[in-house]
Amino acid sequence: IEKFKLLAEKVEEIVAKNARAEIDYSDAPDEFRDPLMDTLMTDPVRLPSGTVMDRSIILRHLLNSPTDPFNRQMLTESMLEPVPELKEQIQAWMREKQSSDH
């Protein structure tokens, strides 16, 4: 029984630690959010139409349809242009958020 109590305490400790580690990014500025999924972008790319999306989301879309989801023009992965300035701004915002939450 004592071992179970210790195990339960350890589990509670881990759960509390994980809860502290989770950071809420739901208040991200609109320009940091993917327009299709409304999630925080981690690897922004510009489509030929000028729309900026997260790379993982547009690549997932391209698996089903080789088109720009906003104007239905033909689109391939090679046409995606990285946006390193925005990526750095997002990373800086995330770092600031992490340091203010801890």
Results as ranks from 00 to 15, higher is better:
Ile1Arg: 09
Ile1Leu: 06
Glu2Gln: 07
Glu2Asn: 14
Lys3Asp: 00
Lys3Glu: 06
Phe4Cys: 09
Lys5Gln: 10
Lys5Val: 14
Leu6Ile: 09
Leu7Ile: 09
Ala8Leu: 10
Glu9Gly: 08
Glu9Met: 09
Glu9Leu: 05
Glu9Thr: 08
Lys10His: 07
Lys10Ser: 15
Lys10Leu: 03
Lys10Val: 14
Lys10Thr: 12
Val11Gln: 12
Glu12Tyr: 12
Glu12Leu: 11
Glu12Val: 06
Glu13Arg: 04
Glu13Thr: 03
Glu13Leu: 03
Glu13Lys: 08
Glu13Gln: 08
Glu13Asn: 02
Ile14Lys: 13
Ile14Val: 10
Ile14Met: 12
Ile14Ser: 09
Ile14Leu: 13
Val15Gly: 08
Val15Lys: 06
Val15Asp: 07
Val15Trp: 03
Val15Arg: 12
Ala16Glu: 11
Ala16Val: 09
Lys17Met: 14
Lys17Tyr: 06
Lys17Trp: 07
Asn18Thr: 09
Asn18Gln: 05
Asn18Arg: 15
Asn18Gly: 05
Ala19Glu: 13
Arg20Glu: 11
Arg20His: 14
Arg20Ala: 13
Arg20Ser: 14
Ala21Val: 10
Ala21Asp: 14
Glu22Gly: 05
Glu22Asp: 08
Ile23Gly: 13
Ile23Leu: 12
Ile23Asn: 10
Ile23Val: 10
Ile23Phe: 13
Asp24Tyr: 11
Asp24Val: 06
Asp24Thr: 02
Asp24Asn: 06
Asp24His: 08
Tyr25Cys: 12
Tyr25Ile: 02
Tyr25Asp: 15
Ser26Leu: 15
Ser26Lys: 15
Ser26Asp: 15
Ser26Cys: 14
Ser26Trp: 14
Asp27His: 05
Asp27Asn: 09
Asp27Gln: 12
Ala28Pro: 09
Ala28Thr: 14
Ala28Ser: 13
Pro29Gln: 03
Pro29Ala: 03
Pro29Leu: 05
Asp30Val: 08
Asp30Asn: 07
Phe32Cys: 01
Phe32Val: 01
Phe32Leu: 05
Phe32Arg: 14
Phe32Tyr: 10
Phe32Ile: 02
Arg33Asn: 06
Arg33Trp: 02
Asp34Tyr: 00
Pro35Ala: 01
Leu36Arg: 00
Leu36Pro: 00
Leu36Trp: 00
Met37Gly: 00
Met37Lys: 01
Met37Ile: 04
Asp38Gly: 02
Asp38Ile: 12
Asp38Glu: 03
Asp38Tyr: 15
Thr39Asp: 14
Thr39Asn: 07
Thr39Tyr: 03
Leu40Pro: 04
Leu40Met: 09
Leu40His: 11
Leu40Ile: 09
Met41Lys: 00
Thr42Ile: 11
Thr42Met: 00
Thr42Ala: 12
Asp43Val: 02
Asp43Cys: 04
Asp43Ser: 02
Asp43His: 06
Asp43Ala: 03
Asp43Ile: 00
Pro44Val: 01
Leu47Pro: 00
Pro48Ser: 02
Pro48Ala: 02
Ser49Gly: 04
Ser49Ala: 15
Gly50Arg: 08
Gly50Cys: 02
Thr51Ala: 08
Val52Ala: 04
Met53Ala: 14
Met53Phe: 01
Met53Leu: 15
Met53Lys: 00
Arg55Ser: 03
Arg55His: 05
Ser56Ala: 08
Ser56Cys: 08
Ile57Leu: 04
Ile58Asn: 01
Ile58Thr: 03
Leu59Pro: 01
Leu59Arg: 09
Leu59Val: 07
Leu59Met: 15
Arg60Cys: 01
His61Glu: 06
Leu62Pro: 00
Leu62Met: 13
Asn64Leu: 03
Ser65Phe: 04
Ser65Cys: 01
Pro66His: 08
Thr67Ser: 05
Asp68Glu: 01
Pro69Gln: 02
Phe70Arg: 04
Asn71Phe: 01
Arg72Asn: 00
Gln73Leu: 12
Gln73Asn: 13
Leu75Met: 04
Thr76Pro: 02
Thr76Asn: 08
Thr76Tyr: 06
Thr76Ile: 06
Glu77Ser: 04
Glu77Ala: 05
Ser78His: 02
Ser78Glu: 12
Ser78Ile: 05
Met79Arg: 06
Met79Trp: 07
Leu80Val: 06
Glu81Gly: 06
Glu81Met: 06
Val83Gly: 00
Glu85Thr: 03
Glu85Gly: 13
Leu86Ile: 08
Lys87Met: 13
Lys87Asn: 09
Gln89Lys: 12
Ile90Leu: 06
Gln91Pro: 00
Ala92Asn: 05
Ala92Gly: 11
Ala92Pro: 00
Ala92Thr: 10
Ala92Leu: 06
Ala92Ser: 15
Ala92Tyr: 10
Trp93Tyr: 04
Trp93Arg: 01
Trp93Lys: 02
Met94Thr: 14
Met94Leu: 13
Arg95Trp: 05
Arg95Lys: 01
Arg95Ala: 14
Arg95Thr: 13
Glu96His: 03
Glu96Arg: 04
Glu96Lys: 13
Glu96Met: 01
Glu96Asp: 10
Lys97Glu: 14
Lys97Leu: 03
Lys97Thr: 13
Gln98Ser: 11
Gln98Arg: 15
Gln98Lys: 14
Ser99Arg: 11
Ser100Asp: 15
Asp101Thr: 03
Asp101Pro: 09
His102Asp: 14
His102Cys: 11
His102Tyr: 12
His102Asn: 12
